[in-house]
Write a protein that binds this DNA or RNA. Structure first.
Lengths: 344, 344
DNA sequence: ATCCTCCGTGTAATCGATTCCACGAGGAGG
DNA sequence: CCTCCTCGTGGAATCGATTACACGGAGGAT
């Protein structure tokens, strides 16, 4: 592969001049510039980003470590992150932690070894020493979606409290009183927050959230299935199951179906994190939608700001409730059939 | 950040010795080794991958350019690629082309600039000059899922012919005779092949595939919707719509629902590429499933083989039909309700 | 005419690793 | 005791860029 030396030789100038042309430094004669450009074209020369990075100490690359790529929410997040980064002249390297702290650590380590300019993380746990260390020693870093309390890093996230209140209001209006939640891992902020918000919203209606109605999940479909089975085995099963993420909602749907029961007639279902497929499930699932695209954009902007020496502002965007039919909502208005209300 | 020089100074040896310890070169005394290791630990030293790459001319990184991350099929592919690459000691940088040739070209270019060791591509089109050039000038490269005819690069893909035959047999047995297809872009091999396989399978039953029953899609949900509306507007609409990918099937489902029609009673639906959500849609969708994980693994193995100077074998794995209820199949055996057959 | 600036250019140092080569010490063999 | 290896080690070149510095020439001011 042609190097800058080859270009210099062919253009009859020094490598310094070639470099100046390529970085459009002002003091280059028009003549030299055209000769260099001609040589570049003839050789199909492309600067070696590795060498350039070594010298300039910047890679124009951002690292993104997410908890689970197979979750459509994170896929969309990753996509919008890449889009915004590209617009700003950066590349993105994605590391998929699969909700495993050891994998998360692996990715953080290799990203740091590659000297990425900044790191976007949606932490799976309390954070490995390596990550905490990076944050402390000044690696530009921003948390997205989830964060680690006590670590001084900007956080870009969505606030679901309002939407959870709306959801509970919706459920209450439909007559539901026994509401259960499939929680995310306690090690994650989103895992804890969603439970807290749910409990708080319940409290506003004088409803309690008994321990038996809090199932411990891990944001994966299997755990949603397992927890839901537990709920159904209770002597007094809940009337509604609220899954703290979309994958666990899917598992819950599986569990309900496996019992030969139906949503929402036998049990209602709602989920945190909306995805296109929820429109097409049987029944369509009521969910809380995060402004995922905006989250990705804002995260990149905050990170790039940090990279360039700025403060990198934290951002919190509101989520919103999207009502469908999985909680017993009457069929949509265009349907002429009479409204049938679920039991209780 | 500590460099090899700092380690050398602290251990009281030369940088050469430090490097030898780190790459466990045999001729290093036990004494020197322990001192170096101690210094590494004390300083929290991690070798600079950028510098190392410049010198060794290898990045231990693979590039993966896929057509559309938001498509669950490609997400899973990307995930398995990363898994296998990690097992082999490589990192992977994913580029999302979003079915846009210009974006694909952008990613190929930046990946090449970064001097990745090998490139995995699922081409969106016939290939940009840059990509063709890279293939010709010896950049290790492997096509996955889709490929470009006439380019001498190993191809790792899934053969769907058998599964398409099974699908047509299934449809024929259910009494369907007017079968239509939502095709993928003609610029992609998978776009063309699936139509060909479908037409061929139809031929075996003496059925034709009229032009009116071939809708041109682009592998995105919107096109599936549009094409399906066209089908429904025909004076003699098809009884079955076969979408050449999962996203277009989703669009088709939308279109059918928007008309107030039902699957499979009014029109049957099948898709290429199975995904977990198809189990939960209304109705569950009959689909052709590719062995995605194995495809990803095989692709990485072939690429790494090329990188290390081997031939890099092409691989073709069979896809298989997964029957669900979207084509009018009787309800699954465990259901006690009587079988109801769709019209025609 | 002299001096000072400014402009375009080249030489060489530098980034952080790897690795070839030379060198000195020590052991084995004659 | 001399020679020859072998082993551990360090010096220095190298990868391909960027950039500080020096230098020569042109042009303007005095």
């Amino acid at each position: 592969m042609a190097s800058i030396k080859d270009v210099a030789a062919r253009a009859g100038v020094s490598v310094a001049t070639v470099s100046r042309v390529l970085n459009d430094h002002p003091s280059v004669s028009a003549d030299a510039r055209t000769r260099v450009l001609a040589a570049v074209g003839a050789l199909g020369y492309r600067p070696n980003a590795v060498a350039r990075s070594l010298r300039t100490d910047q890679t124009r690359t951002l690292g993104l470590v997410i908890s689970d790529v197979m979750n459509p929410y994170f896929t969309e997040l990753a996509r919008s992150v890449e889009e915004e980064a590209r617009a700003l002249g950066y590349s993105v390297i994605i590391g998929n932690a699969d909700e495993r702290p050891d994998l998360q650590d692996h990715h953080v380590t290799t990203l740091l070894d590659r000297r990425i300019d900044g790191l976007l993380v949606s932490p799976t746990d309390g954070g490995s020493p390596r990550m905490l260390d990076a944050a402390r020693t000044g690696t530009p870093m921003v948390f997205v979606d989830r964060w680690i309390p006590g670590v001084d890093v900007p956080v870009v996230r969505s606030d679901g409290r309002g939407a959870v209140r709306d959801l509970v209001a919706h459920l209450h209006a439909l007559g539901h009183r026994r509401l259960a939640i499939i929680a995310g891992p306690a090690a994650t902020t989103t895992g804890r927050e969603r439970v807290d918000a749910f409990r708080e919203a319940l409290g506003a209606y004088g409803l309690a959230l008994p321990d038996a109605y809090i199932g411990q999940g891990d944001f994966q479909a299997d755990s949603g299935r397992r927890v839901t089975e537990g709920f159904l085995d209770l002597t007094e099963p809940p009337e509604v199951v609220f899954a703290a993420d979309n994958l666990m909602a899917l598992g819950a749907l599986d569990a309900v179906r496996a019992r030969g029961l139906r949503v929402p007639d036998d049990i209602a279902l709602a989920a945190f994190d909306d995805i296109p497929w929820f429109v097409h499930t049987d029944p369509p699932v009521t969910a809380i939608a995060q402004p995922t695209r905006e989250l990705g954009r804002a995260a990149v902007r905050a990170l790039v700001d940090r990279v360039e020496g700025g403060p990198g502002e934290s951002v919190s965007l509101p989520a919103r409730l999207v009502v469908r039919r999985s909680c017993g909502e009457p069929a949509p208005p265009q349907s002429p059939s009479p409204v049938r209300r679920s039991t209780s």
